[in-house]
């Protein structure tokens, strides 16, 4: 059974259809690359997968549960399973890095403050963020903020991670760090959907690609099927020959 299944997803804003009919699935343990031109609606799809956005029509199944008609309150269980890594980290800027990481634990677990501290230390160490612990988000570089956002999303061990351009605007060092983290989580069996414009990283981490355009899925291919000899829309998009619109 697919862990995520999107069926005939349609989404309009003020009568303008961003997505007309998008369907795809993500298997357990897989890393799916979701690509497409700027403004084509990749973030909209990703947001819909945890109910931040409601489809105009169509269905979204997460582990056999149709979530698109769930109430906000009932989405909590889904959001504990499926983590969202925001484009700019979306850290709480009035809280220190420590409190940002403590947030999911304090909300969803019964750990006492000592246990929380131990877990945060382990997490900071794993993500190479130990020196950031007491700082406020505004005191960190963009790359650090993204890594903290990633660490926060991982605090309660989600089964699925949705990455929204995790490497955009990062230097090669931070890009590599993010790439290593994604691969490490993948080894642990975490399923992921990876939205990015950074093709080298996408090719390094994704098992399969879905390309969006014109409100639907334009092309879909396993990573090891990408071919230089007989390029489809996906290959042409990746090499920059084709904008996808």
């Amino acid at each position: 059974m697919a862990i995520i299944e999107v069926k005939h997803f349609n989404k309009s804003f003020d009568g303008h259809a961003v997505h007309k009919d998008v369907s795809f699935r993500v298997e357990k343990g897989e890393c799916l690359g979701l690509v497409g031109g700027s403004g084509i609606g990749k973030s909209v799809v990703l947001r819909s997968l945890i109910g931040l956005e409601k489809p105009t029509s169509g269905e979204i199944w997460i582990e056999g549960e149709e979530i698109s008609k769930l109430k906000e309150r009932d989405l909590t269980a889904i959001r504990k399973k499926v983590a969202y890594v925001f484009q700019n980290g979306a850290l709480f800027d009035s809280m220190s890095v420590y409190d940002n990481l403590a947030y999911p634990l304090r909300e969803h677990t019964a750990f006492n403050e000592d246990e929380i501290q131990t877990r945060i230390h382990d997490q900071l160490e794993e993500f190479g963020l130990l020196e950031a612990e007491g700082k406020l988000p505004a005191e960190l570089s963009g790359g650090m903020q993204k890594r903290v956002g990633l660490a926060r999303a991982m605090m309660i061990g989600p089964k699925v991670i949705l990455y929204d351009e995790p490497t955009a605007g990062l230097d090669p060092y931070n890009t590599l760090k993010i790439r290593e983290t994604v691969l490490r989580l993948k080894k642990k069996g975490v399923t992921s959907v990876f939205v990015t414009h950074d093709m080298p990283t996408a090719i390094a981490v994704c098992d399969r690609f879905v390309m969006l355009g014109e409100g639907r899925v334009l092309d879909e291919r396993r990573a090891d099927e990408l071919s230089r000899k007989d390029p489809g829309p996906l290959e042409r998009f990746i090499t920059g020959d084709y904008g996808g619109y």
Binding site: E72, Y84, F86, N88
Partner: peptide
């Protein structure tokens, strides 16, 4: 605008 409200929701809180 900095998506912190979305983050509150995405982290399963209200």
């Amino acid at each position: 605008v900095t998506q912190q409200i979305d983050a509150i929701r995405a982290l399963g809180t209200s």
